[in-house]
Each structure stands twice: as structure tokens, then as C-alpha cells.
Amino acid sequence: MGIGQGSATCGSRTTCGSLDVKLRLFSSIRKYYLFSKDTAQVAFFVRYMSSQGPKEELLGLLPLSGQTRGEDIANAVQKCLEDNKIDLNKIVSIATDGARSMTGKNKGATTILQSKINHEILTFHCIIHQEALCAQTFPAEIVEVMNLVIKIVNRILSKALYHR
């Protein structure tokens, strides 16, 4: 009789393997000085429908060599999709931070990708960035109230009991 290959066993192995990788990484980091590399990166998230329902995953953290023009971003996204054998025509929408390099009507990444896709795509301004822009126009009284609410919510979360 071999070792069980049920979903619980495989799930446990995956969790243990992930934990082992994380522990080795932290152990290695503790030994050395940390530094950052001056490389612009694009976080490339994908949302898709699976048989279990909607999913959202980080497909890649794409380094941009040189500049952060729309062309550079579009090329990095296209290369990531090609490397992962994902058809570019699977894209149905793109959410961005609203930067000109992403949304420019002639040279923006969304415009460039749209020209390579065989159908119309929807483009959205990320809701988090919309909220941040909106918050910049709030009167001081509202900002004070919001800061208090955030402080209270963070306090509640920090004291919450976590259980399954």
C-alpha cells in the first residue's frame, strides 16, 4: 500500500512545501543585507472563470527594462502571456491605474494591446485608484472622520479572534 494521494494529502503537501520555501527564503534573507533594484515592474493580475467559480491570481511581476512606455508594458504583457501559452485573444478587459503610459489613445498599453486583439476589449480605471483620487478632494472634516473610522476598524481587526 502506497502513500495516500487524496486531495487532503496533496493539499497538505502543497501547504508544507510552500511553508518550507517560505522558511528557507526568510532564513536566507536574515543572513544578508537587503537592497532594492532600480527596475520598474508591472504587477499582472488575471481574473478568470474556472469550474469552481471566479478566480484572481498574480500571473507575473513583469520587469520593464529601460523605460515604462505603453509599448514596453504591452510587450511585457504579451510576452508573459506567450510564455504561459495563453492566447492574447482571451483578454476581454483591462483595468489600469489611469497613467498615460497605460491609457494613452495613441501609444498607451491598452491601445497597443487592443490593436493586437481580434475583438473589442473593455478598459477600466482601477477602483482603488479612483477612490484615492476622490479622497484627495475631501474636506478636512471628512478626512478626520475617515481617519478615525480606519483607526477603529484596524483596532478591531488587530484584536479579532481568528479561528476556523
Rank of each mutant, 00 (worst) to 15 (best):
E56G: 08
E56N: 08
E56P: 09
E56V: 15
E56C: 14
E57N: 15
L58D: 03
L58K: 04
L58Q: 03
L58F: 10
L58S: 08
L58Y: 12
L59R: 01
L59T: 09
L59K: 03
G60P: 00
G60L: 00
L61S: 07
L61M: 09
L61F: 09
L62I: 01
L62T: 03
P63D: 06
P63F: 09
P63C: 07
L64H: 06
L64P: 05
L64T: 07
S65N: 10
S65G: 13
G66C: 11
G66M: 08
G66R: 12
Q67G: 09
T68S: 11
T68K: 02
T68C: 08
T68D: 01
R69Y: 10
R69Q: 13
R69C: 10
G70K: 04
E71R: 04
E71D: 13
E71T: 11
E71G: 09
E71L: 15
E71V: 06
E71C: 07
D72E: 14
I73E: 07
I73N: 05
A74R: 04
A74Y: 10
A74M: 07
A74Q: 10
N75C: 09
N75S: 14
A76V: 00
A76E: 11
A76G: 01
A76T: 04
V77A: 10
V77W: 03
V77E: 03
V77G: 02
V77D: 07
Q78S: 15
K79E: 13
K79D: 14
C80W: 04
C80H: 04
C80F: 07
C80N: 06
C80D: 04
L81Q: 00
L81P: 11
L81H: 02
E82S: 15
E82L: 12
D83F: 04
D83G: 08
D83L: 08
D83W: 07
D83K: 11
D83S: 13
N84C: 13
N84L: 13
N84V: 07
N84T: 01
K85Y: 13
K85L: 12
K85T: 07
I86P: 00
I86C: 03
D87N: 15
D87C: 12
D87A: 11
D87S: 10
D87Y: 09
L88D: 01
L88P: 01
L88R: 01
L88C: 02
N89I: 02
N89E: 06
N89F: 00
K90P: 03
K90I: 06
I91Q: 00
I91L: 14
I91S: 00
V92D: 02
V92W: 15
V92L: 15
S93F: 14
S93V: 06
S93H: 02
I94S: 01
I94A: 04
A95L: 11
A95P: 04
A95Q: 05
A95I: 02
A95V: 05
A95W: 03
A95K: 06
A95H: 06
T96V: 05
D97M: 08
D97R: 05
D97F: 06
D97N: 14
G98R: 11
G98W: 08
G98I: 12
A99S: 08
R100C: 10
R100E: 12
R100S: 15
R100W: 09
S101Y: 12
S101V: 11
S101C: 14
M102R: 14
M102F: 10
M102D: 02
M102E: 00
M102T: 01
T103S: 11
T103I: 14
T103W: 03
T103Y: 02
T103G: 11
G104Q: 02
G104C: 02
